[in-house]
């Protein structure tokens, strides 16, 4: 995986696969100790305790089309390389929370990637899912809900491309401080 944003996309895809209708993405960046914490919570079908342990085994998957499942193990390896962590909390029929942390200073830490880009794409190709995005760096906070944004454009003859542009610039404008590490608002 090229960057952290793509890992987030991957974990969100797991949530979609689990039949989630509401997915929350919380990103917390600590500019003092240079840690990044991401928490992705869904209300999908959840996992039993046994499944949680097996989810981190690359030779286990809930799918039937192939025999390996490397999304979570790959992320676990990436975070642990930087001295970070990966936790999964899940209950059958209730949902799953995947949280992970990177040490941004570590030489093996992948770049952050474009979170605004990934989120805008997620919002428009999954209009049926309620996304909740919360980003903070201790000083600045930005929160938004995909349903509220999409409602504004409801029933307008806009193509997905145009919609993505608008949402992307909205998210990017509000999350610029995440990359530059300085807060202007």
């Amino acid at each position: 995986m090229e960057n952290i944003a793509l890992h987030i996309l991957d974990i969100v895809q797991n949530a979609i696969e689990a039949g989630a209708t509401r997915i929350s993405i919380e990103i917390e960046k600590n500019d003092t100790n240079r840690h990044l914490r991401v928490m992705i919570t869904d209300n999908g079908r959840g996992m039993s305790e046994e499944m949680i342990t097996r989810a981190l085994d690359p030779f286990y998957t809930s799918r039937t089309t192939r025999k390996v499942g490397i999304g979570l193990p790959l992320l676990k390896q990436q975070v642990e390389q930087t001295g970070g962590f990966l936790h999964i909390i899940s209950q059958p029929h209730k949902g799953t929370t995947v949280s992970f942390g990177f040490n941004l200073e570590h030489i093996d830490c992948p770049p952050l990637g474009n979170i605004a880009d990934v989120c805008s794409t997620l919002f428009i190709v999954n209009p049926q899912i309620d996304f909740y995005l919360h980003v903070s760096n201790g000083k600045c906070t930005f929160t938004c809900e995909s349903k509220k944004i999409l409602e504004i454009f409801d029933r307008l003859p806009l193509s997905q491309g145009e919609l993505r542009q608008y949402i992307y610039s909205f998210l990017k404008e509000n999350m610029d401080w995440l990359v530059q590490s300085k807060c202007t608002t």
């Binding site: 090229e2 996309l9 991957d10 895809q13 490397i70 999304g71 790959l74 794409t121 428009i124 997905q160």
Partner: peptide
């Protein structure tokens, strides 16, 4: 857009279509 897709550039392909 599973791990295999994302790792091989599915995100760019999807944005291209969009």
């Amino acid at each position: 857009m599973a791990t295999c897709g994302i790792a091989s550039g599915a995100k760019e392909v999807m944005d291209y279509f969009i």
